[in-house]
Write a protein that binds this DNA or RNA. Structure first.
Lengths: 247, 247
DNA sequence: AACCATCCTTGATATGGATCAAAAGGCGGA
DNA sequence: TCCGCCTTTTGATCCATATCAAGGATGGTT
């Protein structure tokens, strides 16, 4: 259960935050400041990055792997409220303690920035604040998209929605976007999927079996998914929420 | 179906955005700039402020009344993804078209700011950008809270959660916070409540009746709710999501 | 190779909420 | 004041998903 420095990352060029959150318009001296306050941490599947209520001394960006944000009720019911894929950002500037539990659902490498100096950068560097606002608005849109899934979709549609999202993100990362058929590894256990979808793990398993029987997906082992026809899968998801794949 | 200028609002001092989003640390000349770009619109219950996909030339803040953000699937299933109470902000700087349909669920007055000049203010006035980021993060937290409600709570808990939220907001507005018992008007039809909670309107009605029968709430007419014991209601909601009431 | 701990699948049954249906308020307009 | 529309309540039945239960696959450890 020991964190370690990721051995294979040398500089900011591998760090998504450089491209997505902060650095697109950074001046060289700002980049240098970023270098000063950042460090890498890696986690193995199942490890908890932080518990809700923990003091949080950093904000971070996912370099590789997948993490989840979860909320748990006293009686143990838990709901995933965010899925962090590579290049996603986690942490709330200005907040001392974590509001959600963050868990690595697969091998995970995060690029962390010490919170206090990061907050100073936000205050002194307008385009960083601007970029952060954009990212937060994107996350808000994603959360609202997900509210439709949780509130109004059937179990089958929920599974198809989740697979679409992962497939799309995977395709973008591997530059395979707009390919009709594709394959990817599921970075979540059935239980994690059920926590995301507001279902039980048995229902998740059954619906995956059903989608397989109907030829919407093909399983290679338990975790690898082939999607023969991405448009079919998106259609099963019940709406255009994943229309972004088409663009 | 005609918008009109709200007759009873003369200056920014009645405008929530002044306090919540923009003006807390505004310089006099910034306030003047705000005055230049703002105007009021009012709507009656049921009126649609804008449809998803509409071109959006303004961002706005709710002055009084309640509005909802909704998403609808092709087959008509709809999910509310945001409830806008007085002082809440709506609109995404940098986006041309509305992502959600905005509807007045009661008499509604909004304070609108023309989008382009508002965006310029954001870019040139760091503390406005900062405040906007904070508000967006608050909304994101609220959305994630709601994901737990949608994904994991029972119908009864969902109703209690919604009533708690409205009660709390109402108490804050009328400076009645931390009172144990309180009363408020429901600004939503049963159908709107069902769209928020991912239920049918029949289930909403039945659960309200059940809470009434059990003495958790008292109904005066259909729309006015008395809560004899706020802590009881919060308890029925199933978790501490409304612990904010206690503070 | 045998063992163990997870993770996953499948079956049988139970149930909370949806659906279908009807009637009872409430409220504005003629 | 009465009518007609809209909202709400309540009842009967159905069904999608949860729950309970058992067994199978997988991968790591000794």
């Amino acid at each position: 259960m020991q964190d370690m420095v990721a051995p294979n990352i040398k500089d900011c060029s591998d760090c998504p935050i450089r491209h997505r959150a902060v650095c697109a318009r950074c001046e060289p001296d700002e980049l240098e400041l970023l270098e000063d306050i950042k460090y890498y941490r890696s986690f193995s599947a199942g490890q908890t990055v932080m518990w809700a209520g923990d003091r949080m001394d950093f904000v971070a960006s996912v370099v590789s792997g997948v993490a989840s944000l979860t909320q748990t009720m006293e009686d143990g019911r838990t709901q995933m409220v965010g899925l962090l894929l590579p290049s996603d950002f986690v942490g709330r500037p200005g907040r001392e303690t974590a509001a959600y539990t963050v868990t690595a659902t697969s091998e995970l490498v995060m690029c962390c920035f010490r919170r206090k100096p990061f907050e100073q950068m936000i205050d002194t560097t307008p385009h960083i604040a601007h970029r952060l606002l954009e990212m937060t608005l994107d996350e808000l849109d994603a959360a609202r998209e997900w509210m439709l899934v949780l509130g109004r979709k059937t179990a089958r549609e929920k599974i198809a929605s989740l697979l679409s999202i992962i497939a799309r993100r995977d395709a973008i990362l591997s530059k395979n976007a707009e390919r009709k058929s594709l394959a990817f590894d599921l970075p979540l256990t059935r239980e994690a999927m059920s926590d995301y979808l507001g279902l039980t793990l048995e229902t998740v398993s059954r619906q995956i079996s059903a989608l397989k029987k109907d030829g919407v997906i093909v399983l290679e082992g338990k975790r690898r998914i082939l999607v023969p026809d991405m448009y079919r899968l998106i259609d099963e998801a019940g709406d255009d929420s994943d229309g972004g794949f088409l663009s």
